[in-house]
């Protein structure tokens, strides 16, 4: 059975890649998303056959709630408001990656298999959390909920401090065998705040580039969590999105005649390296 699951994950991953490939050309673009959609359904169905999976009721309920909310909002939204919806959905994906990391850390599963795996869980978690809060700010800005570019006093120093703190706590979490729940919580809170602080100073016009960057980051986070869970579909799809998204970010920045560093100024570079 486990072989069948892995095989369907692999097929799903191939469908994703082919789908993205088709989306890259105007003629085949519409069919591309359908291919990727089939892959997604396949992978989700296969997951229900995972060995000793419990809380199935909870899983189904959560899927129904999440899907219904996204379906309704996705159908209703105006065409011109699309970018912020992408940001929002992307943030949800980042949050999910962060949640996986949190579950694995709280339960001690991640650390039980050595600090290599634990550090992947920690890195994926921090990227996911940053992507979640950052995307939410991007959404709020594009939606007009938040008009002004705001930056905290000592903005760069504060961001650098948070990156250092994250690095330190993350290292401790990854190496200690039984990480305390308190530090895990602090860790994720700092990551969320960092995401907010990183995004607030960036103006609305640059947001698409930033969203694309968070998209790439979420992809990376998914890939890291895929390694933690030993899940081929997540590793492949996450890495493809990470690579494709990074390049897309650069292309978009270039199309706007801005360098990426120019868009992201202030302290962002430091956290990028941590990623």
């Amino acid at each position: 059975m486990s072989f069948l699951i892995q095989a369907s994950y692999f097929v799903a991953a191939v469908l994703f890649i082919l789908g993205l490939k088709r989306m890259a050309s105007p003629k085949t673009a519409v069919s591309g998303i359908k291919w990727a959609g089939i892959g997604m359904v396949l992978a989700v169905l296969a997951t229900f056959f995972y060995p000793d999976l419990h809380n199935v009721g909870l899983i189904v309920t959560a899927i129904v709630i999440g899907s219904a909310a996204a379906w309704i909002s996705g159908k209703k939204v105006e065409m011109t408001d699309m970018p912020q919806m992408v940001a929002l959905y992307n943030g949800m994906g980042g949050g999910a990656a962060g949640a996986i990391s949190a579950v694995e850390l709280y339960s001690g599963n991640a650390t039980a298999h050595g600090s290599g795996l634990a550090s992947l869980a920690v890195i994926g978690g921090v990227i996911g959390a940053v992507s979640l809060s950052g995307s939410c700010i991007a959404y709020a800005k594009l939606q007009g909920l938040m008009k002004k570019a705001w930056s905290a006093p000592m903005h760069q120093g504060l961001n650098a401090l948070m990156v250092i703190l994250l690095f330190g706590i993350g290292l401790a979490l990854a190496t200690s065998v039984e990480p305390g729940p308190f530090w895990i919580t602090v860790f994720f809170l700092i990551a969320l705040v960092l995401g907010i602080f990183m995004t607030t100073p960036i103006g609305g016009a640059d947001m698409p580039v930033v969203i694309s960057l968070y998209n790439a980051l979420t992809g990376l986070a998914v890939a890291f969590e895929g390694f933690v869970l030993g899940n081929a579909a997540m590793i492949i799809a996450g890495t493809v999105v990470g690579a494709a998204g990074s390049l897309l970010t650069l292309l978009m920045a270039k199309a706007m005649n801005r360098s990426l560093a120019n868009v992201l100024f202030s302290g962002f570079g430091a956290s990028d390296e941590a990623a």
Binding site: Y9, A12, F16, G19, L20, M23, G32, I33, A36, G37, M40, A43, V44, T47, F48, Y50, D52, L53, H54, N55, V56, L58, I59, A62, I63, M82, V86, Y89, N90, G93, A96, A97, A99, I100, V103, E104, P208, I211, S212, N215, T218, G219, A221, V222, E225, G226, L229, N231, A233, M234, A237, G238, V240, V241, A244, G245, L248, M252
Partner: peptide, 20 residues
């Protein structure tokens, strides 16, 4: 961008395993 955003929705599979 939106399409690749959808593709990393595969995180759902991992979240299901984690919750499971």
């Amino acid at each position: 961008m939106s399409g690749s955003n959808f593709v990393h929705g595969i995180v759902l599979v991992g979240a299901m395993v984690a919750l499971g």
